[in-house]
Each structure stands twice: as structure tokens, then as C-alpha cells.
Design a protein around this nucleic acid. Structure first.
Length: 550
RNA sequence: GGCCCCGUGGUCAAGCGGUUAAGACAUCGCCCUUUCACGGCGGAGACAUGGGUUCGAUUCCCGUCGGGGUCACCA
């Protein structure tokens, strides 16, 4: 009996690896083309860090004329969730990250290098595992969980490294005959890689992002095929990224320490290893400590969260790009109207350490993004958001023509208004512009300096009776506000007032504040003149009279 | 604990042997013919630490401290 017989006994059905090598040939792509992928578990949940990786991978492939594909890593069947794949596909699509190949729903896929779902690739993994066994580089291991646990305890007690390696790898030195016999006896087993590594030797890995990293060689006989016949991540990565002809494995930082193992696996199988780019995670500050954004604790970890609060996807992408390549910000300033795909992204310029997630910065970027939209677009986006998340907003947006006028206040100019960071903010920004809401809400009038009721009434009465004329242009209107102030004994100019404050009870600004609050119930609003015009004469007069008669 | 990575203002970050140590967000003040926003000007605010190497270290080396990752039949 030799390894070939052993392999045959374990995987009698497996095809020769040559079959797969031929079926999935080298890709015919231009020099330097990057083949990258996003490879999540089918949980349906897309983490902001996952989106970040996908964005980088997609960008690199596009930029080099390569291929970006979506592979589903479902070898751990405990993680499976219904419609998980479709949810992931849709989340990515929201951000315009559309794979060239791979899964497009839970059951469908496109591309010639599939299946793109690992659970459907069992035969392929087994063929390569068989090949490994034939070469004497993998073997069946009969140790059960209890034995492994006991071994670990001994190792801990002895103060040595834990794991299945060297003298601790009991099954690696079993004779082929014994292995065959135990299998024939019906003993349970899994398949392990027979590592040729030695811990006292170093290897150097050149990471695309992290640069040179030195490690001890891997000497662990890791499991490659589990009891359920499916591969572990490490083995699936080896087989899949080889067969799918991946050139760049762009993945999360947490895999960095597996690189020695992965390189060894590629080497022993005789495959050319891909390039690795390990992306630092996006962190959060908690009590002065950094930690990864957590799916359970941090709502902002979920990509879906940004849709819920209505941050435009564009803004999220810009923020991420900004973290990835800090020169993006400068480029954006110089090229305010270009699409982000025109930015010359450099993967090797990515930061080596993890950035703290900054919601304030994200919102600043979102404000910029939204300030460039015209009123029509703001209207449409808000409407779409309101349909899903806010009935009251939906109700007020029902009057489209009027709403667009409202949203157009101080918009579309060279210095557009920049006050909306997310669609969730829209309602609060505009609701007072709607009479039915204005007259029914219970907001208090919060006057500022002038808060004497009689004085307020006096100001308002004089304004409507003598100065308010809807037909006035802005200059005339403003002139009249000054006249009003003067007639009431207030300073015409703020400057004048500041020079001799004791001379007047207040100034033009105080008067206009009264009118502003009367009309909007707010102290801070966009340009009052524009507001009054959008509101129209009837509404303005009604609002003022309401106070006069109070 | 072993192994690996990282450490420039509150945050994201340029700089990589000689710089007044950029810029953005946040913050504060002033100005911008009424508020807010926008815009302009200005302020405050940083090279974790101790040793080397060097004429000279934020930049190079070592230690310390701090932070992060990883050590599964999970990915």
C-alpha cells in the first residue's frame, strides 16, 4: 500500500487535477491586469469594512482592465442565512460595486470560473486533497476533539506552542497500512496538510500594503478537509484562488498571520501564489481603546445603516476612498465634478494602521455631496428615502412643485447651502415651510433679544401694514427692513449700533429676527427673503397675524 | 503568553536624515452690508518614551511603554 492507494481509498470519486487545470485556464488578460475578489460568508450582512475591501478590489480590477468577482465562502454551514447572497449582492449594487463574475443571487451566477459558491465545489477540493495525499503531503488524522483538547492542555501546561505540529502530530507518522486499516475499520478522520516547515526558519512576505513582513515558517499540520467533507478556509483559498486565477488577494488584516501557511500551501501544491494585500480594519474608539467596528455593538458597522439614515452612497464611498488614499481629498477639491472612478487610486498608498471611523467627517463629505445636487435630485432622493423610512416627510413631499421650490432655497448657486448631511435631516430642514404643519405644530416661539409681547406685536403690525410688499425685489425688501428698524427707533446698520450701542435699543438684525421667528418659529433659517417668496403672501400674512392676534 | 503589525495635533493624515512639521474634519476668534449655512482671514493644537548611529534625527537601529491582529474540524 502506498499514498496513491490511500488517496484512492479516501477519495475514490475524485477527478484528476489536470481536468480542472484544463477547465479553468489562465485568463487572457492584458499585462498587469488585476484579478481580485470579494469573498464573504453568506450572512447577508455587509460590514463597512467588507464594503471597503470590495471597493478597493473592484477599483483595482477596473483600473487595470482586470476582473472582479464575488465568491461565497459557505464552507461553514452554521453561518448560512436565507437569501444571504442576494442581500450581499444588492448591498454591493447600491454602491455600484457590480462583480464581473460570480454569484448574482442565492442560486444564480455568471462567469466561466465557477461555481462561485464553495459548497458547490466539494468535488474540486477533494480532487486537490487527493492529489496532496498522493504526493504524501496530506494525510488522514484520526484524532478526535477530546484528544485534541487534551493535547492542548498538555501543551499549555508545558508552556509550549499549542497546535498540531512536530512531535505532537500523532497521525502524521502513522504507516500507510495502518491508516488504511483504520479507515477500513470505520474510524472517523479528517485530512491534514503535512507541513514541511520549521519554526526556526524565517520567511519574508512582501505585502502589497504592509510591505515586508518576516515570519517564522509554518509548521502546523492544519486541517484541510473537515469531517463534513468540506474544506477549511485555508485549503479553499488555495484551490479557489488558483483555479479562479486570482492575481491579488485583497482581504482583511486579520489574515496576515496566515500568510506563511498560505504561501506554503501554494508552494507545496506547485502553484504560483497570488499577491496579497492586507487591509487594516476600520476601528472605533471606546474608552480610549481602539477596537474593530462590531456588528453587534455598532450600528454604523452595517452598510445598511447608511441607507437607513439616508447618507448617500456616494458619500460613503468618498469617505472610504479618503481613508484609503488620503490624497483623494485634494483631488476631489481640484476636480469637484469628476466621477470617483477617474481618481487614480494607488493600493500601495493605503495606510498600514487601522483608522478610527469618523462619523463627523463622513457627514461633512455627505454635506458636500448633497450640496452639489440640484433641488430636483434632492427631492427625488428624499422622496425615495421617505417612502421607506418617514411617512410624515413623504406626506409633505407630496406637493412636488412646491417642495422643489422649498428645496431650491439657496441651492444651485456658486456657494450652495450645505446643511443636509443625510435624508433623515430633510424633514427638519423644511417642515416649517408647510402651512398645515406650521399651524398645527406646538413649537414655542423662541424670540431672541426682543421678547416683549407688545413690542413684537408693534413690529409685526407696522411691518405688514406699511412695509411688506411681496412684489419687492431683494434689495428693496432689505431697504424696507432698514426703514422699519429706523421708524421703530432701532439702528439701521449693525455697525452703527456696535459703535454706540447705548444709543438704540437694538438694530436691524434684532428686528429681522422677530420677523424671522414669527414666520418660521426658528431663529436660524436660510435667507428670509427667499423663504417669504416661496411661502407667498397669504401664508406670510397669516403667520404674522396669528401672532398679532395672540 | 508566543508570533506579527502599528505609534505625527481630538480625528484622518503628508513628510521618510537638515522643513517656520503640509492639508482636511472638528474647535475658537474676527470679517463677510439681519440669523444660520456658505465664503474669507487668523488662533490654539502633534512627531509615545529612553538609549544609540550621525555634524544633525519625526525620519535609521535597539530597548521600554501603549495600541491592534493572530494562535479552531469559523471564516
Amino acid at each position: 500500500m502506498d499514498y496513491k492507494d490511500l488517496a484512492e481509498l479516501i477519495f475514490p470519486e475524485a477527478k484528476p487535477v489536470e481536468y480542472y487545470e484544463k477547465k479553468y485556464p489562465e485568463r487572457n488578460l492584458p499585462e498587469g491586469a488585476v484579478v481580485s475578489r470579494f469573498a464573504p460568508s453568506p450572512t447577508g450582512f455587509v460590514h463597512i469594512g467588507g464594503l471597503y475591501q470590495a471597493l478597493v478590489a473592484r477599483t483595482m480590477a477596473k483600473k487595470t482592465g482586470g476582473v472582479f468577482f464575488l465568491r461565497i465562502e459557505d464552507t461553514d454551514q452554521k453561518r448560512e442565512i436565507e437569501n444571504g447572497v442576494t442581500d450581499i449582492v444588492n448591498s454591493l449594487k447600491d454602491f455600484d460595486i457590480i462583480p464581473d463574475e460570480g454569484m448574482i443571487t442565492d442560486t444564480e451566477e455568471v462567469g466561466n470560473y465557477g461555481p462561485y459558491k464553495q459548497s458547490l465545489r466539494k468535488d474540486i477540493y477533494q480532487a486537490y486533497a487527493k492529489h496532496f495525499i498522493e504526493m504524501g503531503k496530506a494525510y488522514p488524522c484520526f484524532c478526535n476533539a477530546d484528544e485534541l483538547e487534551e493535547m492542548r492542555k498538555k501543551q499549555e501546561a508545558a508552556g509550549v506552542r499549542t497546535g498540531y505540529y512536530g512531535v505532537w502530530s500523532k497521525c502524521r507518522n502513522l504507516s500507510v497500512d495502518e491508516m488504511v486499516q483504520r479507515i477500513n475499520n470505520g474510524e472517523k478522520y479528517i485530512v491534514r496538510f503535512k507541513s514541511p516547515g520549521r519554526e526556526d526558519r524565517k520567511i519574508r512576505h512582501k505585502d502589497v500594503i504592509k510591505g515586508n513582513v518576516d515570519f517564522p515558517e509554518n509548521d502546523q499540520d492544519i486541517v484541510i478537509i473537515k469531517a463534513d467533507g468540506l474544506p477549511t478556509y485555508h485549503f479553499a483559498h488555495l484551490v479557489d484562488d488558483h483555479l479562479m486565477r486570482t492575481t491579488h488577494v485583497i482581504r482583511s488584516d486579520e489574515w496576515l498571520s496566515s500568510v506563511p501557511l498560505h504561501l506554503q500551501l501554494y508552494n507545496e501544491m506547485g502553484f504560483k501564489a497570488p499577491k496579497y494585500a492586507h487591509i487594516s480594519p476600520i476601528m472605533k474608539n471606546e474608552n480610549g481603546n481602539k477596537r474593530k467596528l462590531s456588528k453587534r455593538k455598532d450600528p454604523e458597522a452595517a452598510v445598511a445603516y447608511y441607507e437607513e439614515i439616508g447618507v448617500p452612497n456616494e458619500a460613503v464611498k468618498e469617505y472610504l476612498l479618503n481613508i484609503a488614499n488620503s490624497n483623494f481629498e485634494l483631488w476631489r477639491k481640484q476636480n469637484p465634478d469628476k466621477g470617483i472612478e477617474e481618481f487614480d487610486f494607488q493600493i500601495n498608498k493605503m495606510s498600514v494602521s487601522g483608522a478610527l471611523f469618523d462619523m463627523v467627517k463622513l457627514q461633512d463629505i455627505a454635506k458636500n455631496v448633497i450640496s452639489k445636487y440640484n433641488a430636483e435630485k434632492v427631492y427625488n432622493e428624499s422622496l425615495e428615502w421617505a417612502k421607506k423610512h418617514d411617512n410624515e416627510l413623504l406626506e409633505i413631499l407630496n406637493d412636488k412643485e412646491y417642495s422643489i421650490k422649498v428645496l431650491n432655497i439657496e441651492r444651485g448657486k456658486t456657494k450652495p447651502r450645505r446643511d443636509i448631511a443625510k435624508w433623515k435631516d430633510v424633514k427638519d430642514c423644511i417642515i416649517y415651510m408647510y402651512d398645515n404643519k406650521f399651524f398645527s405644530n406646538n413649537d414655542e416661539y423662541d424670540f431672541d433679544k426682543i421678547n416683549d409681547k407688545d413690542e413684537i406685536k408693534k413690529i409685526l403690525k407696522l411691518y405688514v401694514s406699511k412695509y411688506y410688499d411681496e412684489a419687492d425685489d431683494q434689495t428693496t425688501w432689505f431697504g424696507k427692513m432698514k426703514d422699519l428698524a429706523e421708524e421703530l427707533g432701532y439702528a439701521r446698520e449693525v455697525k452703527e449700533y456696535k459703535q454706540e450701542p447705548e444709543k438704540w435699543p437694538g438694530h436691524i438684525g434684532d428686528i429681522s429676527t422677530v420677523i424671522r421667528v414669527a414666520i418660521t418659529k426658528r431663529r436660524n433659517t436660510p435667507d428670509l427673503y427667499e423663504i417669504m417668496h416661496v411661502l407667498g403672501r397669504d401664508s406670510v400674512e397669516k403667520r404674522i397675524e396669528l401672532l398679532i392676534n395672540k
